[in-house]
Design a protein around this nucleic acid. Sequence first.
RNA 1: GGUCGGGUAGCUCAGUUGGUAGAGCAACGGACUGAAAAUCCGUGCGUCGAGGGUUCAAGUCCCCCUCCGACCA
Length: 314
Amino acid sequence: MADSRSPVICIVGPTASGKTDAAQLVAAAVGGEVVSADSMQIYRGMDIGTGKLPADERIVPHHGFDLVDPGEPYSAALFQTFARSAFRDIADRDGRPVLCGGTGLYVRAAIDDYAFPAGEQTDNPVRAQWTAFAEQHGAQALWDELERRDPASAAVVHPNNVRRVVRAFELLAEGRSYAEQKRNLAAIGAAVPTVQFGLAVDPAVLAARINARVDAMVAAGLVEEVRDLMAAGFREGITAPQAIGYKEIVEALEGRCTLDEAVAAIKQATRRYAKRQRTWFRRDERIRWVDANAGDARRVADQILSQLSKEPTP
RNA sequence: GGUCGGGUAGCUCAGUUGGUAGAGCAACGGACUGAAAAUCCGUGCGUCGAGGGUUCAAGUCCCCCUCCGACCA
């Protein structure tokens, strides 16, 4: 059985690469439990569109699903706390954590030494203030203001990237500097011992798989799921309504496009998302890439397991 | 058969009074520490439907052919 010092097995990759199935097969084989690192699967009620593994298909315990309601704010820092304690709990049970996710930031927050100093995180008045400023005076004016107060940070953020300029203001309000944080980024190492695997799928193959998956989601009742969420005030949320597969269906349900157009938009947005994920994970040299083109979860899991068996166990 | 529109980047289209073409979207590449399925940055030689003509010079004018659409027969 795995002892508590065994490294966390980490499985990453773009959407539709087959992480979910492979991860639980690996977990089952090593006596482990899956921890999902996915910024949208944390929301209750968002099941079909986020590709959440249905409860009756789970063969090992899963964590990281349904942590909050769609209206509630969340953050990478909260996920870090959650993931670290999940790792600990699983190890205490003599299990082995299998972190599985496509949200790069959440994965890194979970396993790397990202420091999120204590303080207000989600319901941030500073964020609200500067976001309003940007809306009123424009992105350039916001950036100019940052340049006046923290030129070093302004220098490393593009004026159009309002989101990040605002973040620099937030840090400034806490007496920290975005520039300095960015400078130290490269030096950040692991906080949790891990073995990382990435599922590699050729873009063309992945695109076909994405298309099929989106059609399957619609067939499985995605539209009804969105309708239910809307009735429950889903649109009041900050992050949840931005989820791919949800925002497009909302457009259709509110009559701004047809369902067919919405479905096409979902496929396209998913493809673009997969590309961003590829870019994110590609540069992490710790990741060992596994060929997942065949779409055979068993085989992917076996490849991972065989590599794991070569790992020196402490 | 006739008249009028239109055939320009993968798609939708701009292209002033002729000076060898440019936007949006897509695609591709990249960034990313508290919203990250978010946010942002970078990359545009394409037989300007085919052929001929006028001109120093034609996507842009003329002729002819062809394809698509609308209307008239």
